[in-house]
Each structure stands twice: as C-alpha cells, then as structure tokens.
Amino acid sequence: MKHIMFDIDGTLIQSYDFDEKCFMDAVHEVTGIAIKNDWEAYPHVTDRGILQTFIERQAPQYSLEELENRVKPVFIRNIEQTIKESPAVEVKGAKRFLMHVLKNNDYIVSVATGGWRETARLKLQSAGFDTDNLIIASSNDHHARIEIMAIAQAEADPSKGLPITYFGDAIWDVKACAASGVNLVIVGERVDHNQRILDYSSLEQSLSFVK
C-alpha cells in the first residue's frame, strides 16, 4: 500500500486567490491593519502560522489565541459569502482522481492543509467533494506544515510505515516535503518541479508519480 496526501487550495480546488483575499480581509476587519502577503517570507505559511508571524511583525498587541478566535469567524463568514455567490471549482479531474484512490485498496488517503479545518470543508463541499470520510489535518492542529502532515500521516497510517506521496502546488509544499523526505507531485504552474502535472485529467500520469 501507499499513502497519498493532498493539499487543498490550488491542489484540489481552484481557491488560492479567493482564499487569500478572504483571509486578508478578515485580518484587516479585525485589526485595522493590512497584513503583508509576501508569504514566502513567512516561516509557516498556514492560517495559524501566518497570524503568528503577523503578530510578531505587525501586531504585537495581540496574543495568538485572541487573534485566532477573532479572525477565524470573520474568515469563515467571508468564505461562506464568497462560495455562495460563486461556488468553488475543482482542479480539473480532482474529484475523479480522489474518488479513484479512495476506493482503491492499494492506497490510503489523507489531506494536510495549511488552512483551518472549517473553511477547508466548506470549500471542498462547495466544489462537490464528499468530505464525510476524508481524513483532514489542518491549521487547527498545528502552525507548522510539516507537523500538520505528520498528524495526517498518524491518523491515516498509525504505523507510519507506508511511503507518502504529497500533491501540492506551492513553494512551501516543496520545502515541507524536502525537509520531511516526502515524495512530492506539484499540481499546476505556480512552482517548477521535476514531478509536475497541470491537473488530474490523466489518471495514469497522476498515478505515475506515486511512489
């Protein structure tokens, strides 16, 4: 068996841009401060990790717990309003690919996202994904992407004995997989990588990188 792990935004659904806007708008509404979106300069590009760095660099008057408790409900509201007006859209072939590996006994499947679990489920469901039996580790669990991935691994594969292939779309996915020794497949065109697919339209190509 093999373990396939997915990111969400930009990997399973085309939500990176509106997710970013909803998050930045929520932070600004709560604090009155425009958060800097040079994400590659943040040590942890997760919802919790970004707030942590935002506090250190721009808003030291807040504690992480206080700011997270205030920003998250506004962010959830922003996402709900956005997908109500325009439902989220899958990356081409993502639902078919995810369903294929979920039903195939050769694979176990999990999701490790830098977003909060509440908005992750909202976006996936909006795009037509069934999340009822999907293992999702998120920024609710930890501020560091590597740790979120480890939590997803532990829940899906308690023995931690199966090789992992992670489908992601961003430079922080590259860094996390390199640091943890995880096989990476990049989805889309945001990052150059030796294993890359534009989308999941070819089931064979998508599976060819799973090791």
Rank of each mutant, 00 (worst) to 15 (best):
Y62T: 07
W172A: 01
R117A: 15
C177K: 01
E118H: 13
G168D: 04
F18R: 02
Y62Q: 07
F209M: 02
S202L: 07
S208G: 06
M149W: 02
D173H: 00
F75C: 08
T131S: 10
P43D: 09
I148W: 06
L12N: 01
T113Y: 08
D141P: 08
A88L: 08
P158S: 13
R70S: 10
I151Q: 06
D38L: 09
K175I: 12
A176I: 02
E155F: 10
M24W: 04
D7V: 01
I4K: 02
A59D: 03
W116N: 14
K92F: 11
D17L: 12
I151R: 11
S202I: 05
K103N: 15
D169I: 02
V71C: 09
F129H: 03
Q58M: 11
A59T: 02
F209Y: 15
A26D: 11
G114F: 05
F129D: 00
P87D: 00
K2C: 09
Q153W: 14
L134D: 11
W116C: 14
V109A: 10
T131H: 08
D132R: 14
Y200Q: 00
V101W: 00
G93Y: 00
A178W: 04
I83C: 05
N105S: 14
G168L: 03
E147I: 13
Y166Q: 01
A41S: 14
Y62M: 06
A120T: 12
D47K: 03
D47C: 09
Q61Y: 05
H28F: 10
V45R: 07
T119H: 10
Q125R: 12
D157C: 09
A144I: 15
P163R: 03
H3F: 15
T31I: 05
T131G: 10
K211G: 10
V74D: 09
A88R: 06
V191C: 13
D9M: 04
F23H: 07
A41Q: 13
G188Y: 04
E85Y: 03
V91K: 07
D7G: 03
H142V: 03
A179C: 09
V89Y: 06
H142W: 08
M5Q: 13
M149P: 06
L98A: 07
A178I: 06
A94L: 01
R117F: 15
R196E: 10
A170F: 08
L184F: 01
Q205H: 09
E40A: 13
E118Q: 15
Y42M: 00
E147L: 12
W116L: 15
N140P: 06
S139P: 05
D7I: 01
I108E: 12
